[in-house]
């Protein structure tokens, strides 16, 4: 994938017209988001003006200040970070152990459990919202970090386990055999050998878990009512009453939610690409 593409780049009578078409297309795709960021820096009144994109002069950073206070961003941001961090940790840990057992260890029900995971990929999480709401209520889990972390881990587990399985299948067993001769147990193999070797898969799974937890809101909306545990998307819902017409501050909130995802994407483009293409292989 990282390979250069000499067939394409060398001769290029075709190059730039295509480049322009694609650039235009990309610009159209990106335009609404640029508008959003632009808008978050304007005065609310300019929303109703005639022009489409206005250079913010001066930039209304006050919108962001309002967004932070009115949108309760500090508290919700902290919650989002806590939930994401624990979700990543647990997803990596659990899916790696599961994948190791499914690919390396020999037992009768291995393929049965693998199939269960694949079925789990198909089950829509929305169909579990209602029963889980009552189950969580029963166990006093509603309004807690657990009400978010547990489902995020559970629904991430099948996909992430398959990523680890795919990766482990490419790792030769010679190292583990040597390790066993040296007297290492299975947990020892996992920590001393698999942890360093599977680092690319760990990165992929971490980025995937971060994004799905950060961007999630329907489960949060269902399982969390208390101020204490609300995550970042809720800050937009704070804009009712006196702030409901402050569109610029709302745009600022949306920008604040979107930026971490984009930054993570720019930093980990390769991991994200590999997790996406995994989806196509494993379907």
């Amino acid at each position: 994938m990282a390979r250069a593409n000499p067939a394409m780049n060398r001769k290029s009578p075709l190059g730039w017209p295509f480049g322009i078409v694609m650039a235009a297309f990309a610009a159209i795709q990106l335009f609404p988001l640029l508008w959003l960021v632009d808008y978050s820096l304007l005065k609310s009144s300019q929303f109703f003006g005639a022009s489409i994109l206005i250079w913010p002069k001066p930039a209304q950073w006050a919108n962001y200040r309002i967004a932070f206070t009115a949108g309760h961003i500090p508290r919700y941001l902290t919650n989002s970070l806590v939930v994401a961090a624990v979700t990543i940790f647990l997803t990596v840990l659990l899916s790696m152990m599961t994948a190791y057992v499914l690919t390396r260890m020999k037992w009768r029900l291995s393929s049965f459990f693998y199939t269960l995971l694949v079925v789990g990929l198909i089950i829509p999480l929305h169909a579990t919202l209602l029963p889980n709401f009552f189950i969580f209520k029963q166990f006093h889990l509603l309004d807690s970090y657990g009400a978010l972390i547990l489902p995020y881990v559970a629904f991430g587990l099948p996909f992430c386990t398959l990523i680890f399985c795919g990766f482990l299948q490419t790792v030769p067993r010679a190292l583990e055999e040597a390790a066993v001769l040296d007297g290492l147990s299975v947990p020892g193999i996992l920590v001393r050998i698999m942890l360093p070797i599977t680092r690319p898969a760990i990165a992929t799974v971490s980025v995937f878990s971060f994004l799905s937890s950060w961007n999630e809101f329907i489960m949060a909306l269902t399982y969390v009512r208390s101020e204490l545990y609300k995550t970042l998307p809720f800050s937009l819902l704070q804009f009712t009453g006196q702030y409901s017409s402050n569109y610029a501050a709302q745009a600022a909130v949306m920008t604040v939610i979107a930026i971490p995802s984009v930054v993570v994407y720019l930093l980990f483009t390769d991991q994200i690409t590999s997790s996406i293409s995994h989806g196509s292989v494993k379907g």
Partner: peptide
């Protein structure tokens, strides 16, 4: 066939997908 712009364009085209559906829908 987009030569040097390929990588940048690839990155840009994926950006809408990486942002929370919450933000894009409200937008």
């Amino acid at each position: 066939y987009c030569g040097r712009a390929e990588k940048a364009l690839r990155t840009i085209l994926f950006i809408p997908s990486i942002i929370s559906g919450f933000v894009t829908s409200k937008m």
